[in-house]
Design a protein around this nucleic acid. Structure first.
Lengths: 193, 193, 193, 193
DNA sequence: AATGAATGAGGATTCATTCAT
DNA sequence: GATGAATGAATCCTCATTCAT
């Protein structure tokens, strides 16, 4: 019997290497060879396990989105009031693991890739839907009819913060999270005069 | 008899063709040949006028940013109160010319290019600084110490709206502009109770 | 407990799979992996049994030629007169098993392979010699000194029919066999004026 | 103005180089790089002028067939009686230029390629149709109803001779042409008893 | 000013083959 | 006996870029 069970290990290594490489370069012009080398294997093996460069990218994007989803889901599980739910979503979106410079860059690069790649676009649509649904669920009790518009604002705001963080190199998402939360708090519960 | 003054015409044509090509493709993997064909000339001539593909991209980005700047500047010129100035900046940011699907896509693609290209990054930094300074100038009289945070929020929000518009295909920036303005209005002048 | 006597079974399966794959594709660009899959085993095992792709091809060609030889030999065994011998050779050459579309294609592909592969060429030379000797044996009593030229004609004619059958998709060699026989009959025993 | 008119020269050189390379190797596994080197240019230029390896092959095959067609057409032009027409077709088919070892090999390799390549198959179908029509035209006055069968025989016989010549290395088609003609003569005008 | 000609460098992908288990 | 794991080598093709005219 041959050495078995390498596939998930290799795939995971390639996904990690892809995110690292893309995060470092800031664009998708990374070679399969480069990714494979980073992951400690030959380019041929990368193709063996993934079929094509596009598939590797897609898997990496799926990984990023699933990490993000897991983070938010975990925090939502511990939230009971609407405000706590809002905080969970936003703080989760800026959690340090997701907000490391490299991760943010990779996120953004893959995000933009969705412009021209239907597969990536589908993945992103799922993320967008889930985020919006989470936000609406938390906002409706607090904002009623305005919930939709506010959710859109918050969604765009989060993405915008990522965009800028990727460029500016914010070492930590805490500040952003707090700012967004405060901004949101103002909208929901405006301070007197 | 050599045609005189072709240079600016050729350059402009190439810049337009680049934006169109990038906007259509959704990424920077457009060939110099393709751009040149679109602009009605040979690839060799494109190189003659620009030196390299990177230079073409940079010129295109510069063009996009200068269009944006002109739009906002024009509107700012007609504004007198701080609120009018805010409105000018935001409505200018979502002006239809800048918000056509193709333009937004190109904007975003070049934006992300700044992640890995110092030249593009410098260009973008100028835009960021100018936007922030404009916003601060308008916000300080209205929000005092909160002006900085609000300006950051608005900047990120605008970028986030572009990001989502590029993917979602918003046919018109008016709705976004109004939403941002309303959100900003809430923060500045909270509705009673 | 190791399975015993697998070798001949595996080898036969691979040979069959090779002929089928080549016959289907119409060329030799079939992968060892594809052949092995067709034969229900791993590519590594195919190498284990055959050593190399070339060896697999050679074995397949040998198989085709031995089938052909067996067919003709069987029919020759039942022939007693020179004319019966001729008929046995020609009808055997177009026997349905050998003339199935896939088989003819594979035959032809391997035939052409002999152009560049000494091993295959040797195999083919054996077939050519045997066919010629069989034909001469039968023709000499009927055609005397013309036997050699007629044998060459018939040999080329048979090969040419294969060539065209492979392209035209003759569903059955019967028609070809009869045509060749009639043509031969004319040469041997010309109809009156 | 640039150096002009290279295209037809380069294309012709590549076609020649392809035929030479294929004829030498005996198979189609010749690299674009090898062909290009033989033709005195870079592989990139070969792609520039032909688009793909397949297109190069197709052009080479077209060239071979057009040479053959021209040869036969020229000889047919000088023929007046049906027998002269037959002789023109057959002698033309075995004309030395077409029957040089390298040319025959290339012919055969491309012939077999038609098994799996629709483009090549179409080309070959044209050749087959033309040959058959030429033969019928000449045979009908001589053989009446038997013309069709004889034409098929002769066509297959010619192809078969090529097949064998490719393997056997006949230095000259004259012998083959005479043999085929004699065989045909026997069929048409059988020698007395 | 303008362009066809030409190429070198590089990248994705495929595949026969080897090896450890 | 059998196979998943792994890779080096090879090939097609693309493209930015240069050059002669």
């Amino acid at each position: 019997m041959p050495k078995l069970g390498m596939e998930p290990i290799r795939r995971a290594a390639l996904v990690q290497a892809t995110i690292a490489a893309v995060g470092e370069a800031g664009h998708l012009d990374v070679t399969v060879g480069g990714i494979a080398r980073r992951a400690g294997m030959s380019a041929a093996l990368a193709h063996h396990y993934f079929g094509s460069k596009d598939d590797i990218f897609l898997a990496a994007m799926r990984h990023i989105l699933s990490l993000y989803g897991a983070e938010v889901r975990a925090r939502l599980g511990a939230a009971s009031t609407p405000r706590e739910r809002l905080s969970a979503i936003i703080r989760g979106s800026f959690a340090p693991e997701n907000f490391a410079a490299e991760a943010v860059t990779a996120w953004l690069v893959f995000y933009v890739r969705a412009l021209g790649d239907p597969g990536a676009r589908r993945l992103l649509a799922v993320y967008h839907r889930r985020l919006r649904s989470n936000l609406l669920h938390a906002l409706r009790p607090l904002a009623g009819a305005r919930a939709g518009a506010i959710a859109d604002d918050v969604g765009a705001l989060i993405d915008g913060c990522y965009l800028r963080a990727a460029l500016g190199g914010a070492p930590d998402g805490t500040a952003e999270a707090e700012r967004v939360l405060r901004s949101l708090g103002t909208a929901l519960d405006p301070p007197p005069g």
